[in-house]
Measured scan of single mutants.
Amino acid sequence: MKATFQVPSITCNHCVDKIEKFVGEIEGVSFIDVSVEKKSVVVEFDAPATQDLIKEALLDAGQEVV
């Protein structure tokens, strides 16, 4: 499964690193693409990962998800 999250609070590479760390810890996540320019995060994943778990990880990383 693939999901795109709009994350307007992404401003720098530190944000990218933190997002990759938090989302990458979720079992089932196979790909993460964070774009500072587009302020988006694209995640490819399989169970047990879910969109809700990914959104929670983004929030835990200090990001706003819309």
Rank of each mutant, 00 (worst) to 15 (best):
E27R: 09
V34T: 04
C15E: 12
V23E: 00
V7E: 05
S9I: 05
A57R: 06
I54V: 04
P48Q: 01
I54Q: 02
L53H: 06
V41R: 00
E20Y: 15
V65G: 06
N13K: 14
A61K: 01
F22W: 09
I54A: 01
T50D: 04
G28Q: 00
D52K: 12
K2F: 06
L59W: 08
F5W: 05
I26S: 02
G28S: 01
L58N: 02
F31H: 12
D33A: 11
K2T: 10
A49P: 02
S40N: 07
S30F: 12
T4M: 09
S30C: 07
G24A: 07
I10P: 02
K38L: 12
S9L: 08
D46K: 12
K39I: 04
T11V: 13
T50E: 00
I10F: 06
V7W: 06
D46Y: 12
V36H: 04
I54H: 00
V66C: 13
D33H: 14
G28Y: 01
A57M: 04
I32C: 04
E20I: 15
E25G: 12
Q51P: 12
V29F: 00
G28N: 03
I10M: 07
K55M: 14
C15S: 12
T4H: 13
A47T: 07
N13Y: 10
S9V: 05
V43W: 00
T4V: 13
C15L: 10
E56I: 12
E64N: 09
K21A: 08
V16T: 05
E56F: 08
L53Y: 05
V29H: 01
T50N: 06
D46Q: 13
D33V: 11
P48N: 02
L59K: 10
A47P: 13
V42A: 07
Q51T: 14
E27C: 06
D17W: 13
G24M: 12
V23K: 00
I10A: 04
P8Y: 07
A61Y: 05
M1I: 10
V23C: 03
L53F: 05
A49Y: 03
D46E: 12
V43G: 00
S30L: 13
A3Y: 08
K21I: 07
G28I: 03
L53W: 05
L58E: 03
K55H: 12
D33R: 09
V43M: 01
E37N: 06
S9H: 07
I54W: 01
E25P: 05
D60Y: 11
E20W: 12
I19A: 00
F31L: 09
V41W: 00
V34M: 04
K39W: 04
I32N: 01
V7F: 07
S35G: 04
V41F: 03
E25K: 15
V42D: 06
L59R: 12
A61L: 08
G28E: 00
V36E: 04
I10V: 07
K38A: 10
M1V: 09
A49F: 01
I10W: 11
E27P: 11
V7C: 07
C12L: 08
A57G: 05
V16W: 08
F5L: 05
S35E: 04
F45A: 00
E27Y: 06
Q51G: 07
C12G: 14
V36Q: 05
D17V: 15
M1W: 06
T11Y: 15
G28K: 02
S35P: 01
V42Y: 15
E25N: 12
A47K: 10
F5I: 06
K39Q: 10
A61R: 02
F22N: 05
V16G: 04
I32Q: 01
V41H: 01
E37H: 09
V66Y: 06
S30Y: 13
D46S: 13
I54D: 02
V66Q: 09
A57F: 00
L59Y: 08
G28M: 00
F31T: 08
G62Y: 12
V23D: 03
Q63M: 15
D46W: 11
F45Y: 14
V65R: 05
E44G: 12
I32R: 00
K38T: 11
C15M: 12
A61M: 08
V42M: 12
C15Q: 12
V34S: 01
G62P: 03
S30Q: 10
Q63K: 07
V65A: 06
V42I: 12
P48M: 01
T11N: 08
K18W: 10
T50I: 02
D17H: 10
V41L: 05
M1A: 09
V65E: 05
I32D: 02
L58W: 02
V41S: 01
L53I: 10
C15T: 10
N13I: 15
E20T: 14
C15V: 12
C12S: 14
N13L: 12
T50M: 03
D46M: 12
I26F: 03
C15I: 11
